[in-house]
Design a protein around this nucleic acid. Structure first.
Lengths: 345, 345
DNA sequence: TTGAAAGCGCTACCAA
DNA sequence: TTGGTAGCGCTTTCAA
């Protein structure tokens, strides 16, 4: 039966040395074009399709594999539109460079986890990793880049979440919103939708949410507007169902919010749906601003005003920097407010 | 500087044999719990975080990596909601079994490609692969499974696309639709949105579209309804922009369609948007049926009637079968028509 | 319970 | 231009 062939076997069958075959695959300049051609064809026929990755990688010390370490579960990332755009960007670049993509998560610290980390030639951390993953990998000295979180041991690609959020809030204030609510993402550790009730900025928050909240609050402050904690909501995951639940709660507040600052478009789109279900007109009765500018934001009805953060380009940039070994320093990508007020109904 | 440690180094430093360390990581029963505990801790301190994957995998002949080979580009798959749900399902299962996920594409037949194929312990083909990928991997005898395409050399997970499409079409006919159009996905090789103008069923089509088209046409036939080729559209990729473009063209036909059979929800949702932009009421003026039942289908306004194909479960099942080595036979997953007529505006 | 050693498949050095 | 060969880091058999 056709089983896995080895270079050695094939070399024996063809009556040449293993080195020659290896060269045929890896170093065209080391042998005549004619011989190479002939060898490749014969390998094909013998069912040898190129070197075994494990062996090759063990020997060479590199694998042509790049890993993205996701802060959340794999499944969650496949369901999140922002993560998907980011991964699209990463994939755009990896494919061009003939690198393979290994998807890892920093959750569930098993030994398999850390073994897997030894394979890739470079690593992109997407979101602040749980557990020891980050420290472990840094200590190996592998090329690594941080995306969407701040820390100083390694280069990073990020946006200015504070400024971007401030910009979103200012937009709302400029439209004379009276009763604001903030639909926050991951403001604390709880897995429940609930009010944000701490007195200070949260400790256990993902960097991103922290910065965005601070941006919102700063804008409010500059307008002498106070946002009490009862009008700030914590949504544990960026999922439509949770967002709808939170928005429903938020809309029962008195006075009912006429402006909603949403930390993601998934939340903002949920807000639009809930508002309309309740007979509210958007934006006449309630103004909603999102964050991310995911593709669905422009397709929604009414279309969503949101902070565009170019997630795909972020992925492209991160992958490019990693492959080019531009590992130092923080790149802050620009954001802009995309204002879409017109209804298309 | 902290560089990559090897088991051998660590063994020397700790004054034990390499086998003992290896056992500490891989076979707890081969040494005393106390010694193991101690060794693991010391390794930790010395910066040895477990065996190198390449070496381990070379030696053991398995890697604990599972690959999904995507028929289209990586980027495209990250953008496609159906693919994302499928990958979620795969990830659900892999994580539980502590397997890692390598994402490969059958496009771009480079040598790196086939090298990468040598690493995984098992492979899921998602959609009929381009190039030689499929044959190559089958010849290695690795566990493999086909998803969403038909072929007889390997087990598969699929749905009955013919039946499902027929069901969708019958639903439309039961509502006395008079002027039907079919918004087809990948009915031919062209990368343009255009009419499907061949006389016979297409040759170069992905299996899926073929079967769905046949299902639509069968339902039509049973109603003595003829669908001319000018009312069948080919959309080359499952993207909202292309779908909108196709729908705009379709709606200029005379008589204007009052029923649209869409081969995906992405297309159907685009159809709803375009129809409403043109002042048509859905479903009063035009009835639209999708395919897939992606999450967005239930959130849209009006909500979309669609064929549910449980993509996530499909991924779970495929991964489970692969890991359990249930590699024979075709699993046909059930589909059902999800009827959502009420508008929530 | 621990240690010594072979060898997984390959690449790259060096010699011919 | 080609061939011989050491050794990448690990696991596992066998012997102690």
């Amino acid at each position: 039966m056709p089983t896995r062939r080895t270079l050695k076997e094939v070399a024996a069958e063809l009556g040449v040395s293993t080195a020659t075959i290896s060269n045929a695959f890896n170093r065209p300049d080391q042998l005549s074009a004619k011989l190479r051609e002939q060898i490749l064809k014969q390998c094909q026929q013998l069912g040898y399709h190129g070197p075994n990755l494990a062996a090759r990688s063990l020997r060479r010390g590199e694998s042509d594999v790049i890993a993205v370490v996701l802060a959340d579960s794999l499944s969650y990332n496949f369901s999140d539109p922002v993560a998907n755009q980011f991964l699209q960007g990463v994939a755009d670049v990896l494919v061009k460079h003939e690198k393979q993509l290994l998807l890892l998560t920093s959750l569930g610290e098993s030994q398999h986890q850390s073994s897997a980390e030894s394979l890739p030639d470079g690593i992109i951390f997407y979101g602040a990793p749980a557990g020891q993953s980050f420290e472990r990998i840094l200590r190996t000295g592998k090329p690594a880049l941080a995306v969407d979180f701040e820390q100083d041991q390694v280069g990073s690609v990020n946006i200015d979440n504070f400024d971007a959020a401030k910009m979103a809030a200012e937009h709302l204030f400029s439209q004379s919103v009276k009763a604001l609510a903030i639909m926050g993402l991951r403001l604390k550790d709880s897995e429940q939708v609930e009010n944000f009730e701490q007195d200070s900025l949260p400790l256990k928050s993902g960097e991103i949410s922290c910065r965005r909240l601070a941006g919102y609050l700063q804008a409010a402050k500059e307008c002498d507007y106070n946002i009490p904690h009862q009008r700030i909501w914590h949504i544990p995951f960026n999922k439509p169902e949770l967002a709808e639940q939170a928005v429903k709660q938020a809309l029962t507040a008195d006075p009912r919010p006429d402006g909603l600052l949403c930390m993601s478009d998934v939340i903002a789109l949920a807000a639009i749906r809930v508002a309309r279900q309740q007979g509210l007109r958007v934006p006449e009765d309630i103004k909603i601003v999102g964050f991310d500018d995911i593709p669905e934001a422009s397709r929604s009805n009414p279309a969503l005003t949101s902070v565009c953060q170019q997630s795909r380009q972020k992925g492209q940039l991160a992958a490019t920097r990693l492959l080019n070994k531009e590992l130092e320093g923080e790149t802050l990508m620009p954001t802009k407010l995309v204002i879409r007020e017109s209804s298309r109904g």
